[in-house]
C-alpha cells in the first residue's frame, strides 16, 4: 500500500494544445507520487519524449528529482546542475502535481511551465494502477470520531450525519462499485464500542476552513 497525491495524465490533445507555440521542451518528473501514479517516472518521461518528438517538438532533456519535487532543495539542485538546458528551453512540461508545476513557475518565472497531469486527490494505492481517495484536506479533521475513516472525502455527499437513505448492502447510491463509507464507519465504531460518537447530532461544519487560499504560519518554538 502506498499513500500519495493521486494524478492522472492529461489527454495528448490537451498537452499538444498547451505546448502549441513552443518547440524546445524540458520534462520534469520525480520518483515520488509522480512515479507511483505512473505519470512522471522515468518511463513516462521517456514516453512523453517519444510522443512530443513525433509531433515535431524537441525534448532537450529531463529534470528528474529523486524523492519528489516537493523537496525544494533537491529540485533547485537539479535545476542548477542543468542550467544550460533550462536556458535553452522554450517551455517546461511538469509531469507531477499542481504544487510542483507552481514551484517551477516560482523558481523559473522567465519561462512558462505547463501541467501534464490533473491532480486528483490524496489517496492510497492498494495495488498498482489503482488509487482511492482518502482525504480532501477539509481543514478540520474528524478522524478521531469516526474510527479513522474519513466521511468528508469518502462519502459521495460529504455527510456528517450519514448515512443517507441510498445506502444499501454496504454500497453507495452513487455507483455500484463504491462502498458506503458510513457503513464502514458504523462497522468500525461498533467494533471499537464507540457508536455513541455517531449517535449524537454533528453540528454544521465550518467549511470556510476548507476553502483556499489557505496559509498557515507556525510559531517557532
Amino acid at each position: 500500500m502506498s499513500y500519495m497525491i493521486v494524478m492522472d495524465l492529461k489527454s495528448s490533445e490537451d498537452i499538444l494544445e498547451m505546448l502549441d507555440s513552443f518547440e524546445k521542451i524540458v520534462l520534469f518528473g520525480d520518483s515520488g507520487c509522480a512515479q507511483m501514479c505512473d505519470v512522471g517516472g522515468i518511463l513516462q518521461l521517456e514516453d512523453m519524449e517519444d510522443f512530443l518528438t513525433g509531433y515535431g517538438k524537441k525534448v532537450l532533456g529531463y529534470i528528474f528529482v529523486e524523492g519528489g519535487m516537493c523537496d525544494a532543495n533537491a529540485l533547485k539542485q537539479e535545476i542548477d546542475a542543468n542550467m544550460e538546458m533550462i536556458e535553452e528551453a522554450d517551455a517546461f512540461l511538469i509531469q507531477a502535481c499542481g504544487v510542483a508545476t507552481q514551484a517551477v513557475v516560482e523558481l523559473l518565472p522567465e519561462k512558462e511551465a505547463f501541467p501534464a497531469v490533473d491532480s486528483k486527490f490524496l489517496g492510497v494505492m492498494p495495488e498498482r494502477y489503482h488509487h482511492d481517495e482518502r482525504c480532501s484536506m477539509c481543514g478540520e479533521c474528524v478522524l478521531h470520531l469516526t474510527g479513522g475513516i474519513c466521511p468528508i472525502s469518502r462519502c459521495a455527499k460529504g455527510l456528517l450525519n450519514g448515512p443517507c437513505g441510498g445506502s444499501m448492502d454496504g454500497m453507495c447510491e452513487r455507483d455500484p462499485d463504491t462502498e458506503c463509507v458510513w457503513q464502514l464507519i458504523y462497522d468500525r465504531l461498533k467494533k471499537l464500542d464507540k457508536l455513541d460518537n455517531i449517535k449524537r447530532i454533528w453540528e454544521m461544519k465550518d467549511w470556510s476552513l476548507a476553502r483556499g487560499p489557505r496559509s498557515i504560519v507556525h510559531e517557532e518554538t
Partner: peptide
C-alpha cells in the same frame, strides 16, 4: 428509508 443500511443507524437518524 426502512430499506437502507445499516438499519440501526437509520433508526438513530430518525431520532436525530
Amino acid at each position: 428509508n426502512p430499506y437502507a443500511d445499516p438499519m440501526e443507524m437509520h433508526v438513530w437518524r430518525v431520532e436525530k
